[in-house]
Design a protein around this nucleic acid. Structure first.
Lengths: 143, 143
DNA sequence: CCAATAATTAGAATTATTCCAATTATCGTT
DNA sequence: AACGATAATTGGAATAATTCTAATTATTGG
């Protein structure tokens, strides 16, 4: 697994901008997240990372995830009393947590919807980030 | 600290409805949450609870919070990699997390705003609950 | 290539939450 | 009011997620 030149440049620039270094561990973790976008936890990422990079440590996984988060290349996703998950989707979107399957699905959001939420804030509040999570079920309309 | 008759009845009915028992520990925790609505963590609630009920255990605090959550008298509030907080505000609302002070503020939401979010869900998804959290700062316009 | 500094590593430590088994309280029925 | 069934409480141990630490290694700019 390998970052495309485009993503490699994205990473390098983002790291540079946020005063951090681009390392092969960070590249690897970023590539993993882009490859399988299933909102894995740090531990799941650790397991995946080890298959190609057996000496990587869990502390490094956390460090890489923090670095990527800080440089805004990925987002953290939180559900009630569950380990944090990570998401490389940079478009404005919400998350749907399926109570049956446990899967997490990206829900793209329109600008108007986000604007309306921003306007719900009273005077004097300014939000740098809005996190939206749905909890519910999917109706699988299978026969 | 004491539940009003109204809230006592609310608690009893909610416990009954959800097949759980109304105990003095649950009353106490519920009263604490209603009294100081600052979104405390389980541990903070434990500390507060002990001053009036010194023998209460942390496990009971968790159990009470779970019971209250299940009966829909309170809500859990989660922020990135932070302990879960608890909120007795039953009106539809979001939470604003102030990055400077760490305080959590309820933001009331209009029906149209919530409807618009529900409509953002694709076919086949139905949400029982939508969680909205703002991260940002408050501008204190003091002279 | 060197020096400065940041990142990685492995493991220990901490924090939040859950589990467990024994005791106690609650509730519906007498 | 007492009884029995069952749920809740308790304290402590166990687990899970994340953070910290100190030594080693890698990256960057000069």
């Amino acid at each position: 697994m390998q970052l495309t030149p485009h993503h490699k440049e994205l990473l390098d620039k983002a790291m540079d901008r946020s005063g951090q270094r681009s390392t092969k561990q960070r590249e690897h973790i970023f590539a993993l997240l882009l490859e399988k976008r299933d909102h894995p936890t740090a531990d799941e990422i650790y397991v995946r990372a080890k298959s190609e990079m057996p000496t990587i440590s869990l502390a490094t996984v956390y460090n890489c995830l923090d670095a990527l988060t800080e440089s805004k290349l990925i987002r953290q996703v939180n559900f009630e009393r569950e380990p944090t998950r990570y998401c490389p989707n940079l478009k404005p979107h919400a998350h749907f947590y399926c109570q049956d399957s446990g899967e997490v699905i990206d829900i793209s959001l329109s600008e108007p919807a986000i604007d309306q939420l921003k306007q719900a804030l009273p005077e004097g509040f300014s939000a740098s980030h809005i996190e939206i999570t749905y909890n519910g079920k999917r109706s699988h309309s299978n026969s």
